[in-house]
Design a protein around this nucleic acid. Sequence first.
DNA 1: CTAGGGTTAG
Length: 524
Amino acid sequence: MINAFCSISSSSPKFLNAMINDHVRNGRLIDARKLFDENPHGRNVTSWNSMLNGYIKNDQIRLACQLFDEMPERDVVSWNTLLAGFRRIGDSEQVVRRFVQMERIGVIPTEVTFTTVISAISNIGFEALVQQLHARVILLAFSSNVFVATALIGGYANLGDSIDLRIVFDEISVKNVTSWNALISGYMKLGCMDEARLAFETMPGRNIVSWTSLVHGYVCNKMPDEARCCFDKMPERNVFSWTVMISGYEKNGKFVEALELFLSMRESGVCPNQSTFSSALSACAGCSSLFIGKQVHVGILKSGLPLDVVLLSSLVDMYAKCGHVNAAIRAFEAMPEKNLVSWNSTICGFARHGFGVKALEQFERMKKHGIRPDYITFVSLLSACGHGGFLEEGERYFSSMERDFGIKPRIEHYACMVDLYGRAGQIDKAEKLIREMPFEPDVVVLGALLAACGVHSDLEHGLVAAELMYKLERDHPAIYSLLSKIYGDRGGWNEVIELRKVMKEMGAKKQKGSSWIQPSFCVS
DNA sequence: CTAGGGTTAG
């Protein structure tokens, strides 16, 4: 009896494959491989495919590639599986490359192939391929396939094409909740609020993802109150829904609301994950709440979640922004692997708390570690130079960013430079920079110039700056407070009185400085 | 045996 069983298991590919799949489903990769190796004669393409899938589902893409190369024969499923593997790790380039390769050697793609490729390129970079793949989908009569069409909805959403988005959706012969959800997300991404709402209301059945997509859509369209209203109506919430709403408040600058909601989540019994904690830390960073930030930190440690790079960088950033620069550095040093973001956070932390020299030193360390700076690094560096009064260093960094690092200065960088020149009293240089920069000056740039004119009581340039600012934002308080300061300095009291009157009429008020009051609740 | 929708630091 036992012998009979053994002979079936080793000679029947069907049975062998079922066993391999069972192992893979339960994460027993080693057992699957052992079974696979022990039955060299009972294997067919499907066994190889199952093994390939096993590596991919267990995030062993390298081993998967190795196995793929060893395969004696490959069918379209082998290719589809490999493509899915690259998509899984977000390697769109490999997906496209392998897809082209497979076509070249004459493997006929299936609906699965298109679903995988289209959804992989929807992320970024190959958007132009969406229409071309769509054309092939039409020719092969795959348009009505719900999987293919759902992937195409995402593709057209990325292209900003709400018309084709709808056409693709209408082509689906049997729509399901996933395709409706893709439609909602797509419309929301393009800012088509009414269409998204209508789709949500008319769809036959909603699930938790539909609700979460709607909430997320409101968040992305800067409507946090609408989002909350929808969030409150949800029949059930999971960690995704909570995280979307918490990070939504955070992204819209409603930091206290974000933290209050984080507290409610803890009371609800739903466990936060790395994203949730990360968003909570950002909210603490946003409102400089060191008190809550520390408690969130403890919560992370107590949760036992793996500390990934994203989470640890949020932690560094929180401490840096809350002014606890030492803790930021300690958290940074404790990171097993550091990335650009965590380096940036430390440089930014030094810069904004007046440790200009340390910010520059940290930048040098970062370069020694072989990390390439990005535009954010330079914003921090230039602002460090501004706060420290390092005019020459600032000029040097500014000119090196494009020359040595290929980073085109953005308007933020020009604003830093205007600030730098302005503080040094070189208002003409600041003005020249503004005239020559390839952007229209914005409120930040003009604000820096106005501030400089105020500090140095430069009436002539101050008036010009104020006039420009007036065109952008006629009731910007900086205009009036700074002009009145300049006139006041020079004893032009009639002008000051006149200005005060105008300010009163417009309701402009001098911006008040205030300290951050810690919200008086606790997060355990 | 292979496929689609919702979160993530500066």
